[in-house]
Nucleic acid binder design. Structure first.
Length: 393
DNA sequence: ATGTCC
């Protein structure tokens, strides 16, 4: 399905790949962003678009000579990692429960962190730059080290999946933990201070921005790129441990070679070339999908997930959706559904089925199949995955 | 999302 040009009166057009119309709050948010003077060409909305803070989750905002830190958000570098293993579904038989318990033992989830920092984590080159980070986060170095290789909470998860050819995949969703959050919050605060001092007229205080060439922009950009690197390596560390757990059960502990590896951000900003111009591209709940890019689009805990390859669609700034997108808030989901609903909707998945994850119930999300149909001009499907084990943060 | 609400 191609995009629809939304009838929102702003200086810049808003192109939407969603097949649903936006609510009043969502329309206002799209309009606010599209009215910023430094927005490039147009704003692109992915098919899973929904309300966020400052900017819509599932939006791609390209900007010239400026950036909006709140549009990137606080979970800097949040994204997905997946590997295709040489194992097949039949090898998993009778082992799911033990695999799940071993994943939980190997990777701290929720508010837990690593007790010790192993060599792989200590050798990360990013620690050498830690002293150069801004906004006085140096006291958080020990915590950042212990959180490297930990999942976090919310909708962060680890899954063992099986594709249509019965091949086993490992997949996980996580970000830059507390350190990325702290850096982002500090810079968002600094942008708001600057806006107040300059008496900027903003459609939303969360759209305070930094201008390229200023020290504040440079400081934010530096910390942003660092946090994105932290998030990517965090996923690599967890995936290595995850792979070892599965190898222990399926290969007698022998190391195996992944048949395909993907590690993509869906909450980040990058300098890119679009329509012949260098721009800052903020993907807030969106994945880069140039023709050579692999991406991961997860469904909810009872639904399918997709490994995709980009089609390099220029109008979308070479992007695609980051998931199914919520249809209702976490609070509403908790009120509307029961534990029985959750048990029914996650049938066949080895996972938690308690009140603590009720807000992640599949029915609180859009249909991933519909979302995929809406972006057939943005990505092609490489593999369709169904989870058999799901560990929630 | 977040040592989850100083």
């Amino acid at each position: 399905m191609p995009y629809e040009k939304l009838e929102i009166s702003t200086p810049k057009p808003v192109l939407s790949w969603a097949n649903h119309s936006l609510g009043a709050d969502e329309t206002k948010m799209a309009k606010n962003v599209a009215s910023l003077p430094f927005v490039f060409k147009h704003v692109a909305l992915m098919p899973d678009v929904h309300l966020g803070k400052g900017a819509l989750v599932g939006s791609v905002v390209a900007t010239k000579e400026a950036i909006v830190p709140a549009a990137v958000g606080v979970d800097v570098g949040c994204g997905m990692c997946a590997i295709k293993t040489p194992f097949t579904a039949s090898q998993l038989e009778g082992k799911l429960k033990q695999i799940r318990l071993d994943i939980e033992a190997a990777i701290p989830v929720g508010f837990h962190e690593n007790k010790e920092t192993d060599k792989t984590v200590l050798n990360w080159q990013g620690w050498r730059e830690f002293k150069d980070l801004h906004s006085g986060v140096q006291r958080l170095e020990t915590k950042a080290m212990k959180q490297m290789g930990s999942l976090g909470g919310g909708n962060h998860f680890l899954e063992v999946c099986v594709d249509a050819e019965e091949q086993v995949w490992l997949m996980l969703h996580s970000g830059s933990r507390n350190i990325g959050n702290m850096l982002a919050q500090n810079h968002i605060g600094s942008a708001k201070e600057l806006a107040k001092l300059a008496d900027n007229r903003l459609p939303d205080p969360d759209l305070a921005y930094f201008i390229a060439g200023t020290p504040e922009f440079a400081a934010y950009w530096h910390d942003l790129q660092w946090a994105q690197g932290y998030a990517r390596f965090n996923r690599d560390v967890m995936m290595a441990r995850f792979k070892r757990v599965v190898e222990k059960h399926l290969a007698g502990g022998k190391p195996t070679k992944a048949l395909l590896s993907v590690n993509c951000h869906h909450n980040y900003a990058e300098k890119e070339l679009h329509f012949g111009e260098e721009v800052y591209v903020t993907r807030k709940g969106a994945v880069r999908a140039r023709s050579e890019d692999y991406g991961i689009i997860p469904g909810s805990m009872g639904a399918k997930s997709f490994i995709v390859k980009g089609k390099g669609n220029a109008e979308s700034y070479c992007s695609c959706s980051h998931g199914a997108g919520r249809t209702m808030s976490r609070n509403k989901a908790k009120l509307q559904f029961s534990l029985d609903d959750l048990i029914q909707q996650t049938d066949g998945v080895e996972c938690r089925k308690d009140a603590g994850v009720l807000d992640e119930i599949p029915a609180a999300y859009k249909s991933i199949e519909q979302v995929m149909a809406n972006q057939s001009d943005l990505v092609e499907v490489v593999a369709t995955l169904k989870q058999v084990v799901c560990v929630k943060g």
